[in-house]
């Protein structure tokens, strides 16, 4: 795999992270289900997955950048596994609604495991780590730049919505209202 192909793949992975963050927003705003503290932590770790690809696009692919995403994916898998285990007993309806038979935290666990496998698979291609002399577009080209700013904007949007949901105190275990909006009303 050439450096240029690896950078395109990294840009695609950023679009995948953006899709996950947008899907979480769809559940929050369309189904009106506010994320619980563990759900928020999983969102943060999905966003953290994006830092490795951003560095790969800017500085070129390096094993250390992939390792950063792997660490974020492992932490995310641990958090989502805990939430799956919290609701695993028969008779437990789980937290929130289900999508295609699985709750969002189960989808998150599948997503983090898929990320671990895909990152490991991409790291098998050693040629991306060698300078092949190809002239790469500055900061990955427009396709990659849009991906980077999309993920950054979605993460900044989460700063605002999380502040509205939790306010300046601790987030509720089972949030039903936006604390800040409730206080202002």
């Amino acid at each position: 795999m050439t450096q240029a192909r690896a950078i395109t793949l990294n840009a695609l992975s950023l679009y995948a992270v953006a899709l996950v963050l947008a899907a979480a927003y769809a559940a929050q705003f369309i189904v009106h289900e506010l994320p619980c503290p563990l759900c928020l932590l999983q969102r943060i770790l999905f966003a953290a997955l994006a830092v490795g690809p951003i560095l790969n696009i800017r500085f070129g692919p390096r094993p250390s950048h992939y390792a950063m995403s792997l660490l974020a994916a492992v932490a995310g898998a641990a958090a989502s596994t805990r939430q799956v285990l919290l609701h695993i007993l028969p008779g437990d309806a789980g937290y929130g609604s289900a999508l295609l038979g699985y709750h969002y935290y189960t989808w998150a666990l599948i997503g983090f495991i898929a990320a671990i496998i895909l990152i490991a698979a991409v790291m098998l291609f050693d040629r991306q780590f060698e300078d092949d002399g190809a002239v790469l577009p500055a900061t990955g080209g427009i396709f990659a730049q849009i991906a980077v700013w999309l993920v950054i904007m979605l993460t900044v949007a989460n700063v605002v919505t999380t502040l509205l949901e939790c306010g300046f105190g601790a987030c509720a275990d089972n949030p039903l209202v936006y604390e800040m909006l409730e206080r202002a009303a």
Partner: peptide, 8 residues
């Protein structure tokens, strides 16, 4: 609050 800071 801690989640807002982590997102930030």
């Amino acid at each position: 609050m801690e989640f807002t800071l982590l997102f930030l």
